[in-house]
Design a binder for these strands. Sequence first.
DNA 1: TTTAGCACTAAAACCATTTGAGTGCTAAGT
DNA 2: ACTTAGCACTCAAATGGTTTTAGTGCTAAA
Lengths: 351, 351
Amino acid sequence: MLTKRQLLVLKQIIRSYTETGQPVGSKALMAQLPVHVSSATIRNDMAALEDEGLIRKTHSSSGRVPSTKGYRFYLDNLVEPAAVTPNEIAAIQQGFGGHFYKIDEIVAQSARILSNLTNYTAITLGPEVTNLKLTGFRLVPLGNHQVMAILVTSNGNVESQLFTLPPEVGSDEVEKAIRIINDELVGLSLGEVAQKLQSEVPGLLFKYMTSPDGFLDLFGNVLRKAAEERFYVGGRLNLMDYLGDSDVDQLKRLLAMMDNDQGSQRQAFNTLLGPLHDSHIKVKLGSELTPDVLENLSLLTANYSVGEHGTGMIALIGPTQMPYSKMIGLLDAFREELAKRLTDYYNHFDQ
Amino acid sequence: MLTKRQLLVLKQIIRSYTETGQPVGSKALMAQLPVHVSSATIRNDMAALEDEGLIRKTHSSSGRVPSTKGYRFYLDNLVEPAAVTPNEIAAIQQGFGGHFYKIDEIVAQSARILSNLTNYTAITLGPEVTNLKLTGFRLVPLGNHQVMAILVTSNGNVESQLFTLPPEVGSDEVEKAIRIINDELVGLSLGEVAQKLQSEVPGLLFKYMTSPDGFLDLFGNVLRKAAEERFYVGGRLNLMDYLGDSDVDQLKRLLAMMDNDQGSQRQAFNTLLGPLHDSHIKVKLGSELTPDVLENLSLLTANYSVGEHGTGMIALIGPTQMPYSKMIGLLDAFREELAKRLTDYYNHFDQ
DNA sequence: TTTAGCACTAAAACCATTTGAGTGCTAAGT
DNA sequence: ACTTAGCACTCAAATGGTTTTAGTGCTAAA
């Protein structure tokens, strides 16, 4: 069993190490601890902590650094969130100034704000609405056989895509197709729409169109884009600051992962962030995560809720030696602020 | 005056240095040169080249590396473009496989192809059409006071933007505004449109709308997006490979410049790449360029022409020690291929 | 249980020496 | 008038030994 003083020692080792990045020795601790004991006493406590596997030495005569187990223990038992400063609140407010046309713009902006605030890397994910409905579908002919397909969902998101019609398709056919979509699919949830798109709709279209395949492709495409989760990343380049000069390889892998905008990115983020959880804020240490992607890094994830409009997620990637209390406090304030902004947006919308 | 053999020596020094990155000494050269002379003779030649400022030593007893002046001389007089390999041609063909809906998609894809091919960083710019015309403008109401504005230009580019109408604007007003736009502005060049948007149009709109300001803003916004030049960057992350581990600062500046998608990026690229030139391919050495942005790097720019559809530009950023003959050959082949693809696209369009 | 004292450890910094790749120069050879 | 062998010389880089420094663990006394 650990004594109270030993816990203090552990806490201070982590605090000091996250600040300076240097292993911390018994003499230095002596000055920093609230209780005043000699360095020899602290050494004894440190030996106990080392026996528990909470701290370790970098070499036989060095100061101590926290082990993964030590961080874990600290995060689970010892850390206390720090209050956000007025400066930070002001920065958040200012970041959210300006007008937004889409929810996604707010979510994207929040990744930027968060990364600016922390100098780490932020990932945000919009509120996930399970019962999102299709509220409208348009095809706008633009001449030269080009049409723009526009799909609107019940959360106000708009997805559009340009498309070139095969020359044999007549405008009357297209009109009928749109009518079918609007009669049959509008008002249903996106899941139902996707299902019907497989089953009934092709048959219906066949009655009125000679070759509905291209049209189905197009619609399916836009639908997929509207339904899929979009991650926004802010401060990718901050990685370069806190990933030591070493490990260029990891840096490249991470940047590449954030750079490409393909499905693989979404997949990677999904497994990385994990599903929505019910605790407000969760800290995962890189070495605890499945593969070596985040070695030496930590991942903080936080949920936010926009009432019936769903629940979303924000995440922060930073070095394992980060000032956790500060970051946890910040993230907690930020999730509430973001939730408020989004609620406001929806209200303004519904009114 | 330089002798023939001295030119050979210079050429080989550059070849060898661009391959290995190591200063090259007289003994090594002895084995590589087509003429067989002793190392002492080569040393004499090297001394002459050094007197001319074409090569220099990294320290008093080291091998030689090309100086900026040496590279310049080599590029102006000695370099001979290498032929592209069948492999490379195949890679280009494959990269251009698949279907494109917009010119910009082709241009963006070409940046990716070029960077994959070279492992450097590619920047591409679409054909600049001075007499681009406005061929259509639509406003699609989507419910909830949202409208999507769509603008089509004569090169087939489509620009769209979501917009929220102030509640006091009626749908009949909007319809009238669209009619005015289509009557007055469609068919004019974008420049003329922008001009009229300042002069006549506001007055016209005032007759039919109570508050045309928001509408004018919207239209101006989309117009600006359609008119502005878009740069596409491929292989940003390759910078990390060829910018030595040193100079992390420069790396960050460059990545940041390529990352942000704001107007400042366009500005930076514009001054960096310079105006369209008439020589097919131009090589600028980093140290020759205005400030220190590209220290140790080279910038290759090439023009391509799509007949009456305008002229565009592709650029390649790589280390100053790059295999110029290979890269110049490659870039030359690529510009022709890209021109062909774009011509095909336009033809298919016009037909 | 705490503390002073001391022997001990390993990294890091310092310094001198050696090695190696390359040079310039001179004097002889063609 | 070139070319070349030979040699003294230079500097960066590697090698190796010493010192310094920041820490440790352990023991014995308070």
